[in-house]
Design a protein around this nucleic acid. Structure first.
Lengths: 134, 134
DNA sequence: CTTATTTCAGTATTTAAGTACCAGAATTAT
DNA sequence: ATAATTCTGGTACTTAAATACTGAAATAAG
């Protein structure tokens, strides 16, 4: 069984975790709590939030009462932002392979994949953390 | 750098290789030739074509003058068929994770990903080997 | 100032994909 | 028949990504 879209567990944990952080805002939320809420490994989740913190998307605080909180308004954080921090920058290319030496004159995929990639890109851009706060 | 769409090198080799097979039809084409043409490892390509052969998409012949040829008309072979043989059956699901214990009442991704998956699915279905024969 | 708690950073382990190897079976040509 | 060629099937190696672990640093509270 395989999915057509590339979303790692890491990216999903980041998104879901940040939704929780946004919902609790302005309270801080720690890694242990998030891991429990998300049924996930605390180690894995901690690693991911470390990266989010380094990237400036969230602020972190150590010690008792420590935890994470957003570093900017929920309206300004999209799934695209999160995805690119966790996975890496997105390539919006026609050919899904980076193979330098493709021997075909015209890419077999035509424009089909470029269009789809762009549509996914827009979708990710439109998913904002603020969507999940009531 | 990451792609939004999941296409392994194996799936790509299968598609590109089969295009060549279709173009040379009804001549047989062997693994060595294909690997050279595609700038790919012969071992890897041979393994992939073994699977395509087992699945009934192509016919294989051993011995000198051996090789591969299509087992049905090029119009009836889509990239979707190839993809599903090489990667595995596609899941058209909303949530890109198979996580059983998601703790969110409503899937964060809404219908967005289901729609996109379906659009990719259709695109793959519309790419036929016959498109590449002039 | 001591203890408990939490993030941090580096490293290690696991898993999956890709690649390589090799002996065996089938087939063609000599 | 014999030799050369090509697919087959199993296994093993390599590499990269994903995930897990562990000790150190920081902070808050008693």
């Amino acid at each position: 069984m395989s999915h057509l879209i590339n979303i790692s567990e890491a990216a999903s944990l980041a998104l879901h975790g940040l939704v929780i952080v946004a919902q609790q805002s302005p309270d801080k939320v720690n890694a242990k709590y998030l891991a429990e809420k998300l049924n996930a490994s605390e180690a894995h989740l901690a690693k991911i939030f470390q990266r989010l913190s380094k990237s400036g998307l969230i602020k972190s605080f150590r010690g008792p009462t420590g935890g994470f909180m957003l570093n900017k308004p929920a309206e300004e954080i999209s799934f695209l932002d999160i995805y690119e921090i966790v996975e890496s920058k997105i390539i919006l290319n026609n050919c899904p392979l980076d193979k330098a030496g493709c021997t075909f004159e015209n890419c077999i995929f035509g424009d089909a994949l470029k269009n789809i990639s762009q549509s996914i890109y827009q979708t990710f851009k439109n998913i904002k953390l603020s969507n999940f706060i009531e």
